[in-house]
Amino acid sequence: MEIFDKELLSKIDNELNKYVEKDNTLYNASKHLLFAGGKRIRPYLATLTYMLKKDNLDEILPPAVAVELIHNYTLIHDDIMDNDDERRGRTTVHVEYGEPIAILAGDLLYAKAFEAISNIKDPKKAHEVLKALSKACVEVCEGQAMDMEFEDRDKISLDDYFEMISKKTGALIIAPIEIGAIMAECTDEERNALYEYAKRIGMTFQIQDDVLDLIGDNKKIGKPVGSDIREGKKTVIVLHALENLPNNKKERLLKILGNNNATDEEIKEAIDILGDSINYAKNIMKNATEEAKNYLKIFDAEKRKRLEAIADFIMDRVY
């Protein structure tokens, strides 16, 4: 079984294209990342969740792509805030089109998401989807603000970190699964199980991003390895290291962490120091992935297969 159904992904892309068909600078800027090889995990999760109970793709595709439009809006604004020059192996929108157009392109995608929701035929479902997506948008903003504040804070607990990633990254993994469940008219028990599954794969998604930043292939991840260290990001790996390293190694790590002028050798040294903490992060992901798959056991064994496979894919992915 292929984890990603090419035919289904093609239908998602066709649906996405309906909202950004115009050919002008603003729309081209909004499409710059949208069709630059993203994995489509979010709309795919919404669709697979829906398909646990129903099979009318025309019903699920508009709300599924709404989440992808929101996700890409956040990426454009993220890149501006982080001053990043590259994403998915190509120049970022603000570098290519300038900051004013990039901000507008992000805003356009945000607005188009709600246009997509307006295409849901059942008003009760449309209202519930709107609530779920609005909540996710609020949490992404809160999580992003927390992440930025962490860079200037000396003392951050692992609990703080997990709260931050549950909002910054988890919210837009949980939302498509909630939306799929709403559209499929899942029971409360099924929705709770799906929420627990989503919470765990959302956490794993961010932790694997943190791991890949240190030991990934920069061509595959589309940015330089170790950029989180230069930016002083307080990831689960760094927080665990700061709690557990002997003083000499801890002091050395703190000298390199957040130093924009750190050499490649110093970045490599910091990654070596973080070795045990990288393994700690991998163990968290392994346990969370098993728990996530266990929550799916209330669904049909055949229909849940791809959702189980995606949980493994998120933990094992290399980009």
Rank of each mutant, 00 (worst) to 15 (best):
I120E: 01
V129P: 10
I60K: 05
I12D: 00
L296T: 12
L257E: 13
G106C: 03
N261E: 15
V225Q: 10
D82P: 11
A46I: 03
K6C: 02
D272F: 13
D152L: 14
K249Y: 12
D276P: 11
E178P: 00
D79N: 10
Y44A: 04
A292V: 13
I12F: 00
G258C: 09
H240N: 15
E190N: 08
E15Y: 00
A171I: 11
N260R: 15
K303P: 01
T47D: 10
K121F: 12
A171Y: 10
A102C: 09
N192Y: 04
K22I: 10
I201Q: 05
G222S: 06
T92S: 14
V211Q: 02
F150H: 03
G38L: 08
L214D: 02
Y50K: 07
E178N: 08
E243A: 05
K220E: 15
K131W: 04
D84L: 07
L75A: 07
I310M: 13
A311D: 09
S277M: 01
E308Y: 08
A66I: 06
D213Q: 10
E15D: 00
L212D: 09
R42P: 01
L61S: 00
I278R: 05
E185R: 12
K303L: 06
K297A: 09
D276M: 07
E291F: 08
L33D: 05
E190Q: 14
A288M: 12
K124Y: 07
Y27S: 11
G226P: 09
A105T: 11
D210T: 05
E2T: 14
N248W: 04
R317P: 00
E269N: 13
I215S: 07
L253H: 07
M51H: 13
D82S: 07
M1G: 13
L158A: 08
I207H: 03
S118N: 15
T204F: 05
K167T: 02
A102D: 06
R317D: 00
E178D: 11
E231T: 13
L214K: 02
V140C: 09
S118F: 14
V318S: 15
L8N: 00
Y73E: 06
N14G: 15
R317N: 00
N248E: 15
I284M: 12
L242A: 09
G222Q: 04
K233F: 01
I120P: 02
D82L: 07
